[in-house]
Design a protein around this nucleic acid. Structure first.
Lengths: 226, 226
DNA sequence: CGCCTATTTGAAAACCGTCAAAGTATGTGG
DNA sequence: CCACATACTTTGACGGTTTTCAAATAGGCG
C-alpha cells in the first residue's frame, strides 16, 4: 500500500485531525501493513504489546475468554480506529485478544516510534486523551447496563450503540450480539425474534436491520419508573 | 489550605510525577478547595463539566442510577486521584454522579486552566494518557466479569480489586459491595456469609477484612475449566 | 446436492432477585 | 446511663428470568 493511501486511512481518525498532509505522510511512513483472513488473530490475550494498531479495512473485534470458555466481545473497530493502545501505553500485556471479523487490513506502528511521534506532536496527545475519554465513558455506561439491566434491555442498548456507529444495518450474527450483551446465544435469539414480531427489527442470516429506532430507544431506557 | 499542602496532594498522583515542586505549586495555585460532608454530592449526572476534580481527603464514589432506581457504583477514588476528567476532556455532561463516601475534601481546577496547563506541560499529557489507559483496562475487565461470571466470582473479584488498592481492610458495607458487583444486597450478604464461614474473610459492621487472599483469587478466576 | 453454520424451539433446572420479618450494632437525646 | 431511632446485617421462602441441554429447521456455498 502506498504511503499516501496509508496517510488517508490515518486521516480518517479524529485523533490525527490536527495533522497536515506532510505530518500524516510522516506518520504513515512509520506504519507497516498487515493483511488478515477472517478469524485470524492480530494479537492474543497475554502478548506483550509491541505495536499500535489501526484498522485499515474490514472489521476487527476485541474479545476476552470467560471462565466458562465462552467469549465476550469488548468492542468492534472499523477503518480509521485505533485499538490495543491502552496496553501499549501502559506497557503491560494485552488483557484481551484481537481477531479479524472479516477479511481485514491493519496498519501498525512500533510502540517506540509512535511515542516519539507523540512527543514531537503534542496536539495529537490531546486527541488521544479525548478518544480514551470517550471509550472510558462508553465502557462505564455498558458497565452499568451489564450490572443492572435485563437481557431485553441490554440487547436493545447494544443494537442502538452499534447503529449509532454503523447505521441501521448491522452485520452481526445472533451469537455476536449475545457475546456483546453478555447473554446466551439462545436468549439473544428469543429476544430478537420478539423484536422481529413487534416490528422493531428485520433480519436475514448474519444481518440485522433496525426498523423502529424509537421503540428500541424506549426499550433501552427501561420500563417507566415504578 | 495553603498552596504547598495542595501541591503535596497533587504530587501524590502519578499523573504529575514529571513535575518539579515549582510546577506543582503553580498547578496548586490554580486549584480551589471544597469540603464535603458524608453523602454530599460533588456533581450530578447530567451536569455540565466545568472542573477537573482531585480527591484531597476522604473518599469519593462515582455512581449511576439504574432503570429500576437502584445505584451502581462505578468507582471509588482515594486522595490524590483525579475523577470526572473523562467528561471534562470530552466537554459533555457527566454520565454519572459523584458523592462523598465520608467527610471529604476535593481540589478542583477550572477546565480551561487545566487544559492550558497541559498545553504548557506536554509530559503531563502522557501521564494522563497512561492513567486513562489504566482505567480503561480495568473497566473492560469488569465488563467481562459482569457480563459472564456468577455472583460469587464477581464479588470475589470486587474484593480483590479493592484490596489491591486499599490493602486487606476494606471499609465498605455489604450494600456497597453489592452495588459494585451488580447484585442485590441480600445476595451479597449471603455470599459474604459463606466467605466468612470458609475463613476467606472476617468482618465487622461496615468493614471487611481479607483473611485468605489465595482462596479469593481462586474463586475470582472461576472454577477449573470443565 | 451436501455440508457447515446460523437460527429456532421446547423443557427442565439453576441462579438470583424480591419481599417480609427480625436481629444487632452505633449513636443520640433525655 | 438508658431508651430509642437508625442503619447494617441476617435468614427464609417464593417466583421470575435466564441458562443449559437437546433436537430440529433453514440458508448459503462449493
Amino acid at each position: 500500500m502506498p504511503v499516501t493511501d496509508k496517510a488517508q486511512i490515518l486521516g480518517k481518525s479524529s485523533i490525527f485531525a490536527s495533522l497536515d498532509n506532510d505530518e500524516l505522510n510522516a506518520l504513515a511512513a512509520l506504519s507497516v501493513e498487515r493483511k488478515l483472513r477472517t478469524d485470524e488473530f492480530v494479537f492474543w490475550e497475554g502478548d506483550a504489546p509491541e505495536w499500535f494498531y489501526i484498522v485499515a479495512g474490514g472489521r476487527v473485534k476485541v474479545l476476552r475468554q470467560t471462565s466458562s470458555g465462552k467469549e465476550f466481545i469488548i468492542a468492534f473497530f472499523e477503518p480509521g480506529e485505533m485499538f490495543g493502545e491502552a496496553a501499549a501505553f501502559q506497557n503491560r500485556p494485552y488483557p484481551a485478544s484481537a481477531q479479524a471479523a472479516s477479511a481485514s487490513k491493519v496498519l501498525r506502528i512500533k510502540k517506540q516510534d509512535f511515542v516519539s511521534f507523540l512527543a514531537a506532536h503534542p496536539e495529537v496527545a490531546l486527541g488521544i486523551i479525548t478518544m480514551l475519554s470517550g471509550r472510558l465513558r462508553e465502557t462505564q455506561s455498558r458497565l452499568k447496563d451489564l450490572a443492572s439491566e435485563r437481557v431485553e434491555q441490554r440487547i436493545a442498548t447494544v443494537l442502538l450503540m452499534l447503529s449509532s456507529k454503523l447505521g441501521p444495518t448491522l452485520p452481526f450474527t445472533r451469537q455476536e450480539i449475545a457475546e456483546m450483551a453478555g447473554t446466551a446465544t439462545e436468549t439473544a435469539i428469543r429476544v430478537l425474534s420478539q423484536f422481529k414480531e413487534r416490528g422493531i427489527i428485520t433480519s436475514v442470516r448474519g444481518r440485522i436491520m433496525i426498523a423502529d429506532q424509537l421503540k428500541l430507544r424506549l426499550l433501552s431506557e427501561g420500563p417507566p419508573i415504578k
